[in-house]
Write a protein that binds this DNA or RNA. Sequence first.
RNA 1: AGGAGCAGCCGGAUAAUCGCGCAGAUGAAAAACUCUGUGAGGAAAGUCCGGGCACCCGAGGACAAACCGCCUGAUAACGUCAGGUGCGGGCGACCGUGAGGAUAGUGCCACAGAAAUGCAGACUGCCGAUGAAUCUCUAACGAGAUAACAGGCGAUGGUGCAACGGUGAGGUAAGAGCUCACCGGCAAGAUUGAGAGGUCUUGGCCAGGUAAACCCCGGUUGGGUGCAAGGUUGACUAAAAGGUUAAGGUGUCCGCCGUCUUUUGACAAACCGCUGGAGCUUGCAGGCAACUGUAAGUCGAGACAGAUGAUUAUCUUGAAACAGAACCCGGCUUAUGAGCUGCUCCUUUUU
RNA 2: CGGGAUGUAGCGCAGCUUGGUAGCGCACCGUGUUCGGGUCGCGGGGGUCGCAAGUUCGAAUCUUGUCAUCCCGA
Length: 118
Amino acid sequence: MLPRKYRLKNQKAFNATYKNHKIVSNSLLTLYIGKEKKDPTSPTKAGFVVSKKYHKRAVKRNRIKRLMREVCRLTLKQGELGKLNKYMSFILIPKEETLNKKFKDVNEAFYNLLDRIK
RNA sequence: AGGAGCAGCCGGAUAAUCGCGCAGAUGAAAAACUCUGUGAGGAAAGUCCGGGCACCCGAGGACAAACCGCCUGAUAACGUCAGGUGCGGGCGACCGUGAGGAUAGUGCCACAGAAAUGCAGACUGCCGAUGAAUCUCUAACGAGAUAACAGGCGAUGGUGCAACGGUGAGGUAAGAGCUCACCGGCAAGAUUGAGAGGUCUUGGCCAGGUAAACCCCGGUUGGGUGCAAGGUUGACUAAAAGGUUAAGGUGUCCGCCGUCUUUUGACAAACCGCUGGAGCUUGCAGGCAACUGUAAGUCGAGACAGAUGAUUAUCUUGAAACAGAACCCGGCUUAUGAGCUGCUCCUUUUU
RNA sequence: CGGGAUGUAGCGCAGCUUGGUAGCGCACCGUGUUCGGGUCGCGGGGGUCGCAAGUUCGAAUCUUGUCAUCCCGA
């Protein structure tokens, strides 16, 4: 789990990130990126979305969210966010194939996305 | 040994590293850091019932409506549970059961069939005892035959889920509960049980099915909304440009309100409710049991983008099923891996 | 979290109230018309009525349970 200050919180923040229309994706994950920071010292916030349409069972949805969070946490800890540091926020959304994947696969997919940010 | 029935248990473990929610300590306070404690289920699920709690409306009675439907008990309550009765299934342990009323009334019963409910006599049929007719035999009385006119009868009837009791015997012209025996069902009486009901006796032979069709009978229920209920304390009731026969407020125009499009705006909330309760564990007492009473001990999540995870190693049986609290309880239903325990029944073998 | 609705042929729907025959349009197949295709005419095939129990002689229809999909409110 991420420490609280790195979490993306309310409805407005999510909508603002979506509206920026800056999207990167591969076969496992989709990444929405927010606007550039005004204050460079404030932390980059992360949001995770798994809709009820993705899977009916709460246990499966929780599992995906936890995997994504863990990936972000470890990346953040090692300071390897790279270009994402410039931005205020990002949102991660899984794809259908992500359902039964392991930690390694999700981790690789996330690093793949980081490399492709302009 | 094999097969089966019922009841119950468990719901991966250990270690290391990196992390999260809540509470407490540290702290003037907030944030951060550190330490300690604690942190999902038997179904948390489906939302099918019943309550608590909160607010709004109502406040007397009747009807209506909805729901329930063998009996007795349990419970805060229930459509739930326990024990019993009847019926059905199984060799049995045991299991299932929406199971009031069809002589209160109405409706429906396709096709087939003579007929599907006003308990029928129309049709198909059976009979020729009785009365009449014709013929034959006889001296006569009378006997026999023919058709079935009057008449008698309700047995027979490719059907159908179902045909106004069934089987057998007697009886008769033919027949019929007309009579008898047994069976089924109905009614009355006696007896027994707290009751549903059980048992016995007698009677007459009278009664199709469907109420998860309308309905009748009996019983229960104030109605609605649901913790995003509801309450407390603060703050905001955003801004700019353009359009408006693309809806409207006036009959028209302008303006205004409203509305539409575009752009900008990521601090605009915090707290209570919120978990100590029809609570859990153990003992004792009452009860066949559900459950109740009582004594002692005990506190086991409380989030708000929403906490239990990730990686590695070892082990169980090869890596572990179904599945995540969101106001709280009582049930029901459904999903579920590998196994274990107790009691009981049946079959076979040995002593 | 709460509330409501719908599952019938490949697709879109009717039939359910009042239980006995599952039907309509498009699509599909065959055939006729045409030089050929379309249109049009004629004929035909295709449905576990979401699933499972029950009531009934008999269930798409009635009752109960269950599964899936969609919509609405906050």
